[in-house]
Design a protein around this nucleic acid. Structure first.
Length: 957
DNA sequence: TTGCGTGATTCTCCTTTGCCAGCT
DNA sequence: AAGCTGGCTTTGGAGAATCACGCA
């Protein structure tokens, strides 16, 4: 079983290793669709639209041991029909679109789970048919226990990973599409045509800095606004429309800003957070409905931003903000202050309640969009009546927030029927929305951010050669007029519950992962990202394209380079360091390591310090790689212990596994809850002697085991172990573990005089090439041992693995190990043997064919004889026989020139009228006399004839 | 709200060198 | 008679991973 897994893994890795981006995506999508189709049947049973709930409960009243007392109205049939339709729709979705399938599924499950909001009796009034349906659910005391969700199986995880990968590829494709649109000459020219003349000079600035970009960004932000509604059309035409109306989705406005920067000859990237489906099964369950609903309507990227007006609300601009303040809007949620520019975008952008109500309804409506074909009635009912407690709480939050901030509530439309319940809910609400807060708190209320709305998803990066002496990619969010706010992105995204797992910069139809620039807590997202090898393979071709588009040479001024590198380093440290971050990993040489890894990755990496001595020119790309690598190595120490469990940089002893040890035990980088923090590089994995042997290493003499583990002994094996010590330990029930520093290369005995050194079992363990005794070779050929035996050459069976069957391990052999000098002789003999075997096999095959032909012909003859004797009695049988004969004539007799796949025999069968009329056909036995047979030299066919006129053609072998 | 500790549950890894009947 | 093939009583325990819950 493990072997199968490994072969599967190796196949996958081989496919991914050799495949192009297209292959990778094709493979991932194909797998996904296969899985979706396969699991579709299984899961569809559980997938019911929320509107199916009643029907479901009706049909299975005892389900989950809940006592359901249902008075079913006359609409039961309608409900059942709805269920059927829903199921059919789900099946279609599963075949057509894996993602929507999953989302719909999750969505429906979420709805199901929402029934868990209320405990105890739940009266549900059904207004559809005028009949009341009352369902009382009495939960048993241990129902909470049972609610524990089933843990994700391996299959679920694989499916989630496939969805994740496919989604990533889709998002990358989308990003490239937008990036291409940003390069459109017409759009760029149009943008330039509306740009004030004084801003055109920015393209001539020699040393571009954030300050130069400030007026441009302000102008853009005041002239373009974001709306949430989008029309289904191609992105390019949508972009044109947005340009025309100065209004568009966040995606479009961000693209326009990038196009504008590019039109001004600024090296610009479009940066996007790839808000991808979770890698872990059902992790998105709770927020799938809103998120996916927005995705469904707005394309793959959802569009929203925290600081912009919604819907068709009057755009917020610096020019108009004062007016708006005068009518009561609050000061704003999100203003960033640039370190360099002290830029403040102090605008009033509190989200109007009507807007949010719209969003709520939109969300619900859109979530149902997938379903609305199924049942209009169900849909209507849902959208009108299924306001959940979360929605009510949210509305109350808004109401309280607005009253607190004196926003006119005229536009707020909270249903009067909900007011009572709202007041109850409101008692529990202590937070207010839109409260003013300092910038450090990111100015985003978590109450608002509790939804995924409002997360920054798009921005631009402009290369400013005047920044940091060596140049710098500058974060510019033109939608919100934020410059150099890269440190804030993570916090804002976190506040909006948008995981910052992938931040990708697009340029020149390529892409580059720049997540490191925006993410300080890498350890938190590392586990949520896809396998880095796969990700690197996907991005590799795109990275080249991106480098070609944005790469440029950076002249490092010798006078300043040293100081600039120091400055950079300090800058990184200051940005990434926290109060607890007083140490760097002691054995990590920042420059050396980052340079090394940067070089590995790009092949062009240059160390700033070394470059100050030997190079004056570095590429932008290499400098950026170095910056990102430096960030990777200078993460602040996490403040919670559990983060150290799988942290890539740091470790605390408490969270080491039993096979891990700290060596050397130091330096201590800091403390977390009193536990000393060590560099992860100090963590060494321990293995038994036997395990090291498999890697071609052996323990040095006189080395003591670092650790001894107790070993559980199976009862039936105690006896065995009493007689023979376990291979990894020197005493019963103990496993001795050694570290890598206690090892040396494996020294195996040499093969002498053609004798292969064998182990106690008379074989050689070949875990890898390193495990072969010097002077020997491993011949992995089937039955090669017989050749060696025949030649009387010493050999040893090569044991390559263990197979676990029936509770026992059995060795798996593959080929033999022989002395190298016999290799050629054995291979030669093996080839001869193989030829001989093939010849024998061929002969056997031909004989078999002849035998089968003989059987066939005999049966035909017998049949013919019977036909001749009894044929008159049955005209039907006669017709049949005639039919058969005619076919045979064509296939056998008449088909002399036809190709015969067997190629060994070809026969013609001719039942003619007897030449000699005296011959009795009834008891006649065919006799083929030699003088009557003829030989066709061209076709090598012998025609044998009987006196009765019967002839057979046989191919001469 | 976040983090920690604990307990419950589930999953994964590790284990490790036949034997025999029937068929060719 | 020798060699090959395939089926057997298809483990079970430890530890890792994950989740829920209470508490601070």
């Amino acid at each position: 079983m493990r072997g199968q897994k490994e072969s599967k893994r190796s196949k996958e890795s081989a496919a991914s290793a050799s495949g192009t981006l297209g292959d990778l995506s094709e493979e991932a999508v194909a797998k996904l669709v296969r899985r979706a189709n396969r699991s579709g049947k299984k899961k569809c049973e559980n997938q019911l639209h929320p509107c199916d709930l009643i029907g479901k409960q009706e049909s299975r009243p005892q389900r989950d041991k809940k006592d359901v007392d249902a008075t079913v109205g006359s609409n039961a049939l309608e409900t059942q029909a709805c269920s059927r339709d829903a199921l059919q729709k789900v099946s279609r979705d599963a075949k057509g679109d894996g993602e929507s399938f999953q989302c719909s599924f999750t969505n429906s499950r979420e709805e199901l789970n929402d029934s868990d909001w209320e405990d105890g009796p739940v009266p549900i009034s059904n207004s559809m048919g005028g009949h009341e349906v009352t369902i009382e659910i009495n939960e048993t005391p241990d129902s909470r226990r049972r609610k524990r969700s089933r843990r994700a199986s391996v299959e679920d995880k694989e499916l989630a990973e496939l969805v994740h990968k496919a989604h990533l590829l889709c998002l990358i494709a989308r990003g490239r599409l937008i990036d291409r649109a940003c390069d459109d000459a017409l759009i760029q020219a149009s943008l330039l045509s509306v740009l004030p003349e004084h801003l055109l000079h920015i393209s001539k600035v020699a040393k571009l800095t954030a300050k130069h970009l400030l007026p441009l960004v302000f102008w853009f932000q005041s002239n373009f606004r974001v709306r949430t509604t989008s029309v289904r059309r191609s992105f390019h035409s949508a972009l044109n429309f947005a340009l025309e109306t100065h209004e568009g989705t966040q995606e479009e406005i961000a693209a326009l800003s990038v196009a504008l920067f590019r039109a001004l000859n600024l090296t610009t990237r479009l940066v996007s957070i790839l808000n991808v489906a979770s890698l872990k099964p059902e992790a998105d369950k709770t927020d799938c409905s809103s998120e996916d609903a927005s995705r469904l309507s707005k394309g793959i990227f959802s569009t929203s931003t925290p600081m912009v007006a919604r819907r068709n609300e009057v755009p917020v601009s610096p020019a108009t903000s004062s007016e708006r303040n005068s009518v009561g809007e609050t000061p704003q949620i999100g203003s960033y202050k640039s370190e360099d520019c002290h830029l403040t975008s102090s605008e009033t952008r509190c989200k109007g309640s009507d807007v949010y109500e719209l969003n709520d309804k939109m969300t619900d409506t859109l979530a149902c969009e997938e379903w609305n074909d199924m049942s209009e009635a169900c849909h209507t009912k849902k959208s009108q009546e299924s306001k959940r407690r979360g929605d009510l709480e949210f509305e109350m939050q808004l109401q309280m927030a607005l009253s607190a901030t004196a926003v006119p509530t005229a536009g707020i439309k909270i249903g009067s029927d909900n007011k009572d319940s709202n007041s109850n809910v409101a008692k529990r609400l202590k937070r207010t929305v839109c409260e003013e807060s300092p910038i450090s708190s990111q100015s985003i209320s978590t109450a608002v951010g509790s939804r995924k709305e409002g997360s920054p998803l798009y921005w631009a990066e402009v290369y400013c050669n005047g920044e940091n002496l060596t140049g710098k990619w500058l974060h510019i969010d033109a939608i919100n007029a934020i410059i150099d706010g890269e440190q804030k992105v993570e916090a804002v995204a976190a506040a909006c519950k948008t995981p910052l797992r992938y931040v990708v910069a697009f340029a020149g139809n390529g892409a580059k992962d720049v997540t490191r620039r925006y993410c300080l807590k890498w350890y938190q997202i590392a586990s949520q990202r896809v396998n880095p090898i796969w990700w690197d393979k996907v991005l590799a071709p795109l990275r080249d394209l991106e480098v070609r588009a944005t790469g440029g040479m950076v002249h490092l001024d010798k006078e300043h380079t040293g100081s600039s590198s120091e400055h950079n380093k300090e800058n990184f440290l200051n940005k990434s360091g926290s109060a607890e971050m007083n140490y760097l990993p002691g054995n990590v040489n920042l420059n050396a390591k980052s340079s090394l890894e940067g070089s590995k990755e790009t092949g062009k990496g240059l160390d700033v310090e070394s470059s100050s001595r030997s190079f004056e020119i570095a590429t932008r790309n290499s400098l950026e790689d170095m910056e990102l690598e430096t960030r990777a190595l200078t993460e602040p120490l996490p403040t919670n212990q559990q983060a150290y469990k799988n942290h890539h940089l740091y470790a605390i002893e408490k969270w080491l596994t039993k096979h891990q040890v700290l060596h050397p035990k130091g330096p201590i980088l800091g403390f977390c809850s009193g536990h000393p923090v060590y560099p992860r590089t100090c963590v060494q994995t321990l293995k038994t002697k036997h395990k090291w042997l498999r890697e071609g290493l052996q323990v040095k003499p006189n080395e003591r085991p670092v650790k001894e583990l107790k070993r559980s002994i199976k009862p039936q094996k105690v006896q065995v172990l009493e007689d023979d010590d376990y291979v990894g330990g020197n005493s019963i029930g103990t496993i001795e573990l050694y570290g890598k520093w206690q090892l040396e290369p494996l020294h195996l005995p040499h093969a002498i005089n053609g004798k292969v050194p064998k182990n106690d079992h008379g074989n050689v363990e070949v875990w890898s090439e390193k495990c072969l005794p010097p002077g020997t070779v491993h011949l992995r050929l089937p039955r090669v041992f017989s050749v060696a035996k025949r030649l009387e050459i010493d050999y040893a069976p090569a044991m390559v693995d263990f197979e676990f069957k029936n509770g026992q391990s059995y060795p798996v052999f593959d080929g033999i190990v022989v002395c190298a000098e016999f290799k050629d002789a054995i291979l030669e003999a093996y080839a001869e043997e193989r030829d001989r075997r093939e010849a024998v096999e061929k002969k056997r095959y031909e004989m078999q064919a002849i035998s089968r032909w003989y059987q066939l012909l005999s049966s035909i003859v017998t049949r013919q004889r019977i036909q001749n004797r009894y044929g008159e009695s049955s005209s039907t049988a006669s017709a049949e026989t005639e039919n058969v004969n005619s076919k045979l004539d064509v296939q056998l007799g008449g088909g002399q020139n036809d190709e015969e796949p067997l190629g060994c025999q070809q026969g013609g069968l001719h039942e003619n009228t007897p030449d000699d009329p005296t011959i009795e056909l009834d008891n006649h036995e065919h006799v083929f006399l030699t003088e009557n047979q003829s030989f066709d030299e061209d076709n090598l066919l012998v025609t044998k004839r009987c006196l009765c006129g019967f002839s057979v053609q046989v191919e001469e072998l």
